[in-house]
Simulated assay, not measured.
Amino acid sequence: MKILIIEDDNETRDYVSAGLKEAGLMVDSVSDGYEGLMLAKEGNYDLLIIDRMLPYLDGLTLVKTLRSTGCTVPVLFLTTMCGIDDRVEGLNAGADDYLVKPFAFSELAARVNALLRRPRATVELNVLQIQDLEIDLLKRGVKRSGQLIDLQPTEFRLLEYLVRHAGQVVTRTMLLENVWDFHFDPKTNMVETHISRLRSKLNAEGKSDLIQTVRGAGYMIHEAA
Rank of each mutant, 00 (worst) to 15 (best):
L78N: 07
K101T: 10
A95D: 02
I84P: 11
G19L: 10
L25E: 00
N92K: 14
V30M: 01
D85F: 11
M174T: 14
I221E: 01
A114P: 00
L25A: 00
I3L: 09
L108H: 07
L128S: 06
M53C: 14
R52K: 12
M38A: 06
S106E: 14
I5N: 03
R120N: 09
K187R: 13
A114W: 04
M26C: 04
G218E: 05
Y45D: 09
L133H: 03
G218I: 12
E223Y: 10
E160A: 13
L128D: 04
N203M: 15
E160I: 06
A121L: 14
G146P: 06
E177G: 09
L37C: 03
G36W: 05
F182T: 10
G59N: 06
V73C: 13
D51S: 09
V30Y: 00
A224N: 13
M26K: 03
L176Y: 13
V169M: 03
I5E: 01
D97C: 03
L116Y: 02
A217E: 14
L4P: 08
A114C: 04
R197Y: 01
G218C: 09
L76H: 07
P153D: 02
S196M: 04
V30P: 00
D58L: 11
G206C: 04
T72V: 14
V179P: 14
